[in-house]
Design a protein around this nucleic acid. Structure first.
Lengths: 144, 144
DNA sequence: TTAAATATGACTGATATAGTCATGTTTGAA
DNA sequence: TTCAAACATGACTATATCAGTCATATTTAA
């Protein structure tokens, strides 16, 4: 029922990224237009270990929540406005689909109770309401 | 973001217990009045390992969701009607308070980011909506 | 006294986690 | 053409948590 540390860090990192380039595109530190930041900068600002921050950024890029540009002067930025990114999006990027039990995933059949389980049919409803709760909180809401 | 196996088992066990004594108090197998069942019976019916079922039952008794009577002829039964027991109650009995991050618990201060974390103030809202979603599903709803 | 049933703690193997280290790839600028 | 900045990726490992078993109380009605 707890988030993994990585998912927690991912939310903190995304929220820091949103402060850099989520709103009007102004860097709060310099007051200048700044669309990009770097994984190292985010690690510094948040206290998340550098290498870990890097891997998470990569994961978030693959999930389509961040955009990265390689090379000198490159960096990362939000792929879409902070208001259009939800906590659920970030959690799913790091941990996979939001579901309280593995048995909802039809590809997995590692539950010993499967077959005789009389609770299973009801999980889909519960999971949907969980996702709804988390999907209703946007990154913009977290930085305000 | 997943339930632990134990919490999952607990829900399955409680749901089985509700079939024994949650409704009109009639055992569906015998058609006779039967207020109590035993941990071993529930383990048999659900496929949960016996010793594990036993520990879970004890945990649920301590949490006030089941009532146990020791000795010959003893056993367990729901402490209140199935409709008055929610999935959230069961999860909290096994895993502790429903919260996605540990930093909400004021007694724990093991987060390295604490102090500078700018996301932390917002977690309470998210956790409350999660608990709301799970609190809305009763044991009676799971057995129907 | 005995047997049925719950109560409780110690121990252990398996698994997942998260962090580090090492190395590769891309690209603009000097 | 070279270099350095910045992202990309995989291998390895210490740690923690989990879940299950074993062993042993404790309670109570018959």
């Amino acid at each position: 029922m707890r988030l993994s540390n990585l998912a927690d860090y991912a939310i903190v990192l995304m929220s820091a990224a949103a402060r850099h380039c989520g709103g009007a595109g102004l860097d709060p530190a310099t007051g200048k237009q700044r669309m990009r930041t770097s994984a190292a900068t985010l690690a510094d600002e948040t206290g998340v270990p550098g290498a870990t921050a890097h891997k998470l950024v990569h994961t978030l890029v693959r999930a389509g929540l961040l955009k990265s540009v390689r090379g000198v002067g490159g960096g990362i930025k939000l792929a879409r406005p902070a208001a259009a990114i939800s906590v659920a999006d970030i959690i799913e990027a790091v941990e996979g689909p939001i579901a309280l039990t593995a048995c909802v995933d039809s590809a997995r059949h590692d539950c010993a109770l499967e077959g005789s389980c009389r609770v299973r049919p009801h999980w889909a409803i519960i999971n949907a309401s969980m996702r709804g709760a988390l999907g209703g909180v946007s990154l913009a809401g977290l930085t305000r």
